[in-house]
Write a protein that binds this DNA or RNA. Structure first.
Lengths: 205, 205, 205, 205
DNA sequence: CATGAATGAGCTTTCATTCAT
DNA sequence: TATGAATGAAAGCTCATTCAT
């Protein structure tokens, strides 16, 4: 078997095992048993358990990020946002159990892993924040704070996915995307479908 | 020292250590060192590492749940929702680093821990769903799917809290609660502050 | 068993195993089997294989150095030198097989070990060199180069000891000490028992 | 490349690697990397790591032994001894770092290696002992014990060489040979340059 | 109850060697 | 003969847990 094929084979096995047992619950022995290779073979292709986890994680991160298309500001915004939401939820649904690697384990491996995850989220969130700010300038996003809102939107993606996994129910990517879109449309998009008043000012506190 | 004090003392030490290092990064040695007691003493009060973690987690879950007051349907709904949001975010902010125990580690310990977490979330989410359904009946919540929406709302709480932790920035509980409330008000609450049209029907799909 | 007794017990076992198999041939499993304790017990008392080796080596170095008494320059020099030679060879003979730890393994463990050994020898050799220089001033040591000579004297101790071990013959400490002393007396000590002429000048080169 | 050239090439690479890292610190991977050949090629030319080490060691042993010329009993003894000393130290100086292979690693590989080394030394030492005994018969060597003395002489060669390496200073072969020769001349050679009295009898014990 | 030394299963990793190409 | 991916035995080490004091 060619070296890169073997590496992919091991990567797939590792992904399965990490998805099933988590980073700490998975042993290199589990991975090589799943891949049906000898222990040493694993170490011919990866530096160790830590590195293969990073590689698996990297694939997941790339998949997610590549599911988001840039917004064309000259076209209708809402359909593009909706398409992106569908794209991401579809990727997450395709990842199946492996989403736990990205959403649960990545943050609990070690300090370095936490830093890598922080960098990933910082990147993703800044894209969302920029999009929100741009939308505000264009008048398609209601004015207001963007940082917490961006994080909330991320949570709207992450949480339903993880909850579906916890509840052992299949993830309906389309339904989730629509639910989030509805939240967005009636919540952050202005215009005929949006809110008439400035949020945070209408109610006495 | 009385037995129950000793237990509380160990529990506090365990909470600190788990918050700093995570479940797998924390050792019983760390906990007893933090509590300044002998190893054996630990096992006089807890069955083991697994159980003390469950106890720490239980306290956190109870704190969060107890921060939510029942909605009085005869009074204004919105201010009550807002108060509850402020209550939860305040509790989470007070938990500080320990939120990682609830939001990150709890789901990666083992299958049993995952089941416990699933039960906790099932409980919490069902309360939100019931509230949403009640609100729909009362006409204060827009009609539509409730399950994914409830999960999204949970994500709106969890994610900003965890992102603040990852970014090593202090959590501004009030600002977060307001941001979520704005999302709610313009997104899921109907009436004068909400959207005029039925979500999901306005845009061609 | 008291902690320090256990440590001594393990140290003795380690010394035996290292003496028999050498640093790399010895495994921690061998040591704990010899000491008849569990693996973990070993790690309660030593940081690891490397450290227990250093501890064993430290004992040997201390034993050797403490076998050498300072020379009293107001008394006869020769008998004191002779007594020191007997002291060292006796210590080395008592060490038995363990001399290989000091004379063979210490230098091949790693760079750090080599540095430690270099420091030990630098210390020991500088004492010999100072003694030679002092002797030259007093007129009891023939004039000439001291550094290589000091190293030769060290070799006169080390080599016969190691050769006896290699030949699997018991080390006759007294006979060795006398042989070295004879070499010294007729070679480096001047006076009636020494050489009459200046070395290196008598023969054409 | 011809088979024997390939073998020499690997042998040279192995010698360098063993000299730098020692037997246990060196891996076959290091050797083939140094020789810039594939792993399998190594095993086409040598049975394994153990054998290539033996081959490297054999070259070193041969070099050292061949540096010693037989003594012509009809000519002056002293200059011949002196020439041999210079020959050996020159060979050792030329070996550079590789002397550690002969002087340090050879004895710590395994029981078989120790036996090989014992045989080498037994051979070398018996030549020295025979020379000493012959010298005694001829009256050019002082009477007395020869075995320990022969070992001491070996130590006078080995130790300064190793100490120079440990101290990371270049080996001055000529100076060392002279120092040893001075020791010999005033210590073991009788006659005009030697000691007047019988060693071991002059001092009260 | 408090203590802390002892336990040992289980982990990650290394590396000399093999063998199909 | 050259190659280099695959092999797997064996190593050092960790740490949750036990139990005699």
């Amino acid at each position: 078997m060619a070296a890169s094929d073997r590496r992919e084979h091991l990567l797939a096995a590792a992904r399965e095992v990490f998805a099933e047992r988590g980073y700490f619950g998975a042993s290199v022995a589990d991975i090589v048993a799943r891949a049906d290779v000898a222990r040493g073979t694993f170490y011919n292709h990866f530096e160790g358990k830590r590195e293969v986890f990073a590689a698996v994680l990297g694939v997941l991160m790339t998949n997610v990020l590549s599911a988001v298309a840039p917004i064309d500001v000259n076209a209708d915004i809402a359909p593009q946002v909706r398409a992106n939401l569908h794209g991401i939820t579809r990727v997450l649904a395709e990842a199946g159990e492996a989403v736990r690697i990205l959403f649960t384990d990545a943050g609990s491996v070690d300090a370095e892993g936490e830093a890598a995850l922080a960098a990933f989220y910082a990147h993703a969130l800044s894209r969302v924040e920029v999009a929100l700010a741009t939308g505000q300038t264009m008048g398609v996003v209601r004015v207001g704070e963007t940082r917490q809102t961006a994080r909330c939107l991320l949570g709207c993606l992450r949480e339903p996915v993880m909850q579906a996994r916890l509840a052992r129910e299949p993830l309906d990517a389309a339904a989730l995307a629509d639910a989030i879109f509805d939240l967005l449309r009636c919540g952050v998009l202005t215009g005929e479908a949006g809110a008439a008043s400035v949020p945070g000012a209408a109610l006495p506190r």
